[in-house]
Amino acid sequence: MKTKLTILSLSAVALIVLFMTYHVMGNWDYVLPSRGRKLAAILITGAVIAVSTVVFQSITNNRILTPSILGLDSLYMLIQTFGVYALGSSNMTFMNKNVNFLFSACIMVLFSGVLYKLMFRREGQNIYFLLLVGLIMGTMFQSASSFMEVLIDPNEFLILQGKMFASFNNVSSDLLILSTVVLALTTLYFMRFVKYLDVISLGKDEAINLGINYDYVVKRLLVIVSIYVSISTALVGPITFLGLLVANVGHQLFRTYKHAYLIPGTILLSIIALVGGQFLVERVFGFTTTVSVIINFAGGVYFVYLLLKENKSW
């Protein structure tokens, strides 16, 4: 197990070095800060998406779910579409990025808060019920966005299209610092619950039997997960299936229930996928596609494979 982690860490570091130094041609002053920002954005979102998916899957006892289906991605798109539709793309670009970030993140956290409140009001609610409602809301947001999308002028649509897919290219340093602070605080809070994760993955009855205040812990974990997802989505845009991809590869690779290995392993996988993907996009595809499109594609295909394979874990 430890060797696997070491190998993963080494590959991640090697990829990062390659990414930072490839084809610099002496322009260190320009290249380093610009790639450094990209890298920071990748590290943050990669880690956050990995952790939130692993935690989410342990809570739901299910390997084919991801927090993206809480409807947050679609909500983000609705906010962005509405922004472009109502204010126009030029105003949208001029609109302070920080304001947009904070506004979107807050709305998303608020939405999931309200969703949880409504769903957990009645005792004994099935968590799948919560997810289904989230997903339905997501479909509704999508209908609303596509209604506006068609009304938008094709030129403005291009601006919007840029936001539909996660991109690490234009993340400003202020935003990076801001989201790092928020995430660090959230993670500090999350640390209190880490020790419960192994037991929670056994299932509700077992967890209660082993003395976990189940409802209390799960609600807090869900809030943490939605803060994570909101921040990463607001920072770079939606990458729906990255979490699904890396969490499942992580489970396959480590074959353990121990989150002490699963979480770092999945974080590393996620970083490898993103740095590698970004490298491919820049050097091989020459920016004709985006990382999130590639990863969603790969993740999606892998997921269908998982579903069709006979499997006991869900």
Partner: peptide, 17 residues
């Protein structure tokens, strides 16, 4: 239990409290 556990690991969970 959907998680893959050995007997010993399962029994060890009994000490969690």
């Amino acid at each position: 239990i959907s998680v893959r556990l050995t007997v010993k690991e399962l029994v060890s969970f009994g000490r969690f409290p």
